[in-house]
């Protein structure tokens, strides 16, 4: 029997953790309370070995948007409320936003989509939806590769995508879409024939070779997360 090649938490445990984390982040009212989950998730990023520089590069746009949220709360809302109240509201909004994004980023960074899909399918999610997720994941690198090739093909025709200009960007967008869609449609047809030719959709259910291990620690984590959320709901 084949198991998940990477030892670690079951994706279900991680999903429950993420949901619990988001609930806590949304319920945090004061900036101090909101800072706790934020600090925890940043520490978790460090624990998985993601250098702060890379994290900043990935999420700096998010940080800027959080700042915009804070400033908009500070200056555009409040209706005559004191500055301190508006600032606290702004921090709360920005921290909620940051916490949810950081938590989701941690989840995505540590969970393979295929493990998640197989786990959810084994839990009863229709395999059609599970494979929709898997196939979407397969298409991401394909689209990246194809769009890169199309851009290169434009460049070699002298279409000015190597010259930064508004016209260049307009041309790039205009001339990229059609070839990309056409090649994608061809691939979809091949994939449909391949899947149907191997009996995808023959039965309402299917069996699986792959198992993603669910260990006692996963059960403990799920139980703990639910307990913490319950306690927080009672206290906060």
């Amino acid at each position: 029997m084949i198991t998940c090649p990477k030892p670690g938490l079951n994706p279900l445990s991680k999903l429950v953790l993420l949901v619990s984390f988001c609930v806590l982040a949304l319920r945090a009212e004061s900036p101090g309370h909101a800072a706790v989950p934020c600090g925890a998730v940043l520490l978790a990023h460090a624990a998985i070995g993601l250098p702060p520089a890379i994290l900043w590069r990935r999420l700096r746009g998010i940080a800027v948007f959080a700042l915009v949220l804070f400033l908009s709360q500070l200056f555009l809302t409040g209706g005559g409320a004191p500055w301190g109240v508006r600032a606290a509201s702004g921090v709360r909004m920005a921290m909620r936003f940051l916490n949810i994004i950081l938590g989701s980023h941690l989840f995505v960074s540590t969970t393979s989509a295929e493990d998640l899909a197989y786990t959810l399918m084994r839990l009863g999610l229709s395999y059609r939806y599970g494979f929709t997720l898997l196939i979407a994941m397969r298409f991401v690198p394909y689209f990246r590769l194809q769009s890169n090739t199309v851009l290169q093909a434009q460049m070699v025709r002298g279409i000015g995508v190597d010259r930064p200009s508004i016209k260049g960007v307009w041309c790039m967008a205009r001339y990229t879409l059609v070839p990309l869609v056409v090649t994608a449609l061809g691939r979809v047809e091949s994939l449909a024939i391949s899947m149907e030719g191997r009996c995808f959709g023959l039965h309402p259910r299917r069996t699986f070779l792959r198992t993603v291990p669910f260990r006692p620690v996963d059960a403990l984590i799920i139980a703990g997360a639910i307990a913490v959320v319950g306690a927080a709901a009672a206290i906060l």
């Binding site: 994941m137 397969r138 959709g201 792959r210």
Partner: peptide, 27 residues
């Protein structure tokens, strides 16, 4: 263009799984 999974083993197992073969038979 005809692969629908991420790993070799999953891809080869895809057909038998759709036929509702038990896990040991799929393996």
């Amino acid at each position: 263009a005809q692969f629908c999974t991420m790993r070799v083993e999953d891809e080869v197992a895809f057909g038998p799984e759709n036929l509702l073969c038990p896990a040991d038979e799929i393996a």
